[in-house]
Design a protein around this nucleic acid. Structure first.
Lengths: 349, 349
DNA sequence: CTGAAAGCGCTTACAG
DNA sequence: CTGAAAGCGCTTACAG
């Protein structure tokens, strides 16, 4: 016990067989006499044998390892969902995940990719925390790679992203279904960024409006920043307008949260006086709001799963042009949407 | 290029030297003629050589790898901060982190530990998402281990946890400093659980009160569940009492968030009418509240860093009794604490 | 069904 | 300063 850990040699010697036989038992190969197998297993048990993975890796050339690189995570709580989904799929295939938070520094990222390659990873997942274009380390081309919630300049890698447009459409449709026609929309970022997370959700909003025969009204649109202050400010602003919206679609749950405070200040109740749909499905916010927020979920776990699955099943060097897979963003119904309020006494119009 | 990747042998042959020399260059050993070094480096460059880590690992016996196991993460956004801190320290020491979300299933956890050991990890970090007692896989005893935000039955492992008591004390002191004497406290879990996260914060509250000469009043205490509804309900309840509190200390930011809604319903403004301190420093909540929430930060990144550092520096088998390190929980001032309101017209008393 | 041998790609004494 | 050789712990044909 105090000595060094037993190798396959030690087991072979102790069991009076060859190392090849021990290896066969270890790998549950067929051609082993039942008696021999039992004997070897007993010895392994007794000596507390554990195979050394590094030796196996070196001999077979298979690392059974994937790299998982996160980009610009900072404060988002999404990373874990992504890792969780990726790992669940990896475990099914008996693979492990080397996770690297490559937040920030480009040098760190390059180094991380180099380390991963030296460790023989069978593939790398490069995950961003919101849907945008990224510049990835060049060495990523040396190994199968899939991008998550982002895409590379030139789209030279397979990627999996949320279907922002469809998400925006569903959010808007939900509001339309309850009779709303004047629906305020606050984007989750400045449109000039070109981020699909901003542009796409708005596009979905417009599509839904068009499909319902409701003309798009520029006066109902605001470009937000994603954070609570922005939602608070634009909610007030929109409500101050002539013919204000009866419902709001916010590009993030955080903005919806800010708006709740604006509504409270005006004595407006959700969803009786005003309806709201968010985007992201950040549980800690959406569940904690009163009433809880109806929102669009980002498919983080599903994207993580898809990424690993793609690495596992897509033959490398084969998918040109690289695939971009869009995953649906399901709506999560909670309590923030209701019918259009009937104009009661005290109305201004 | 299309051939298999070059090994140290290929480099040696191409450079007309022995493999030992290439190895020396690779590892930046002293005894190499400058000219030889340059030649070898040129060849490595030209052939795109990358060392194979598995071979190095096998030969040296050092995996330069730590395992990171998370326990019961579910929805908390803390995991990432922890990983980030651990990884930052690991990178300094040229180590990598194998992250495993062992949420839920005990079998998965056992298997994960076995896999990690087979991969030759130099240590394992087992992290919980809130401070409580855990049952860990027995195999953890085979390898240096440190527990984060939890401790094992029998305290047989080193661990690093938040100083809950001190955090509770600081929260309360902050309120006392602004003149509050009637401070409502809502614990973040039922006290019967015995969780340090619940019991400790309350203890700190009592200590601060005692130090300030303010008698503890049971009527001001409620046992919460940690979520927003709980904060909302108890805030109303406490405010309905005779001689209600002028300030609140909530065991979680989520409860504080729920309370904000209760205050709004009563037309109470934070911090003019009522002061609030939370616990956890969940940015997405604390920053998004209006006004932003003053709260106590859990030292997740610091705990992650400490854990890796301990693994790196503590000689194994040497620290008996195992160390339990308590890390401070700094207060984060935002805008939810103000002076005691002067009793104005309309008061009931 | 089973054993002996080769070899994966490194590092490390050991000679020279 | 440098080369040849051994060996880390496995798996995989190859004989028998």
């Amino acid at each position: 016990m105090a000595a060094r850990k037993p190798s396959i040699q030690d087991i072979a010697r102790a069991a009076g067989v060859g190392v090849g036989t021990v290896s066969r038992v270890l790998n549950e190969r067929p051609n082993v006499a039942e008696e021999t197998r039992a004997k070897v297993e007993r010895v392994m048990q007794r000596l507390g044998y554990r195979p050394t993975f590094a030796a196996r890796h070196m001999r077979t050339g298979r690392s059974q390892l994937f790299g998982f690189l996160t980009d610009q995570v900072t404060t988002t709580p999404f990373a874990h969902e992504l890792i969780k989904g990726a790992q669940a799929r990896a475990r099914q295939a008996d693979r492990m995940l080397m996770v690297i938070d490559a937040d920030g520094d480009d040098r760190v990222r390059e180094q991380a990719v180099a380390n991963l390659i030296e460790r023989g990873v069978e593939g790398i997942i490069y995950a961003a925390m919101f849907h945008h274009e990224v510049h990835v380390p060049a060495a990523l081309h040396e190994v199968p790679t899939v991008l998550v919630d982002c895409y590379a300049v030139g789209r030279t890698f397979a990627s999996v992203v949320p279907d922002e447009v469809r998400g925006g459409r569903e959010a808007t449709e939900r509001l339309l279904a309850d009779g709303h026609r004047r629906i305020g929309m606050v984007t989750n970022d400045v449109l000039a960024t070109g981020y699909p997370a901003a542009v796409g959700r708005l596009e979905g909003y417009k599509e839904a409006l068009a499909a319902a025969g409701v003309p798009f009204d520029e006066a109902l649109l605001r470009e937000g920043t994603g954070n609570a202050d922005s939602g608070y400010g634009w909610a007030h602003d929109l409500l101050d307008a002539d013919d204000p919206p009866t419902a709001f679609f916010f590009g993030t749950d955080r903005m919806a949260m800010g708006a709740y405070f604006a509504f409270a200040e005006r004595g407006l109740t959700v969803p009786d006086d005003v309806s709201v749909v968010g985007f992201d499905d950040q549980h800690y916010i959406a569940d904690a709001l009163r009433p809880a927020l109806t929102t669009i979920a980002l498919p983080h776990a599903a994207m993580g799963r898809w990424a690993v699955d793609h690495l596992l099943t897509a033959p490398w060097g084969d998918d040109r042009p690289p695939l971009q897979r869009r995953l649906p963003c399901p709506i999560v119904e909670r309590g923030s949407v209701g019918p259009v309020p009937t104009r009661a006494e005290g109305e201004e119009a």
